[in-house]
Amino acid sequence: MTMSPRTRWRYAVNNVMLTLTALCTISTISILFFILGYLVVNGISSFDLAFFTQLPKAPGESGGGMANAIIGSALMVGLASLIGIPVGFLGGIYLAEYDGGWFSNAVRYAADLLNGIPSIVLGIVAWNLLVVPMKSFSAWAGGVALSLILIPIIVRSTEQFLRAVPNSLREGALALGANKATTTLTVIVPAARRGILTGIILGVARIAGETAPLLFTSLNNQFWTTSLGQPTASLPVMIFTHAISPYDDWHRQAWAAGLVLLTIVLLANITARFVVSRNVG
């Protein structure tokens, strides 16, 4: 088959573009795999049972773990979730279902702004609000700082997914004599539940990796935390302090902690994907 010059030109352009996009894709995922591989290579040597069960050792001593930081992170993320999920969820419902003009717009704008504020600024706020009056760094302060990041994320994602529910479902429920609240809780939220859940999982995964706000609020702790009012260790801060230390042992521990954190975030993302793609009516 002979091709006209025009057709041949089109084929040529097509091939060039295809190659370009393929190259971009490959470079993107290769960076990701490079980081993953680097973390595994450097962290795997300290990645043992002790890492999950023991306290950090003093500089110079080898071995030890970050059990206190794992528990501390779980504690503060849990605290942030307890505050952030209900507030964010209900706020999202308000914005999506009870759109009331200027006030809703102001709230929505504020949430977007809050999403864009560097997390360290939110750390300072929590420090001012809690650390200063309580005269101590604490898990409380860390949890609150993280919740400040979590709330706007959940507000906006909940709102988006609720808005994506077809209006015909709202009208369908209203037409059966359901009131607004019943309609929202029994039809609209269930219809959007997978999306809402995904937003929550991704939000929680995001705050699990936050470092900056915790530096001002929960600080760090080389030992077990026995009360929420104490300074508390967390994985991100632990990574930070170990990585900037001059000790090789600590560096290896930091790599291992990075690997654990990345695994947690990855699992959360995969779970979110799984939730979204599950085919339930």
């Binding site: 015909s168 429920a173 059966l176 004599g177 269930p190 219809a191």
Partner: peptide
């Protein structure tokens, strides 16, 4: 609206079971 029911252009079954769809109105 309980006395004046409505059916829409696009069928809008709730994302629930067949039973729960029908039972929705009586329940609320």
């Amino acid at each position: 609206r309980r006395r004046v029911g409505m059916v829409f252009q696009k069928s809008n079954p709730f994302p629930k079971s067949i039973f729960d769809n029908i039972a929705y109105g009586p329940k609320v």
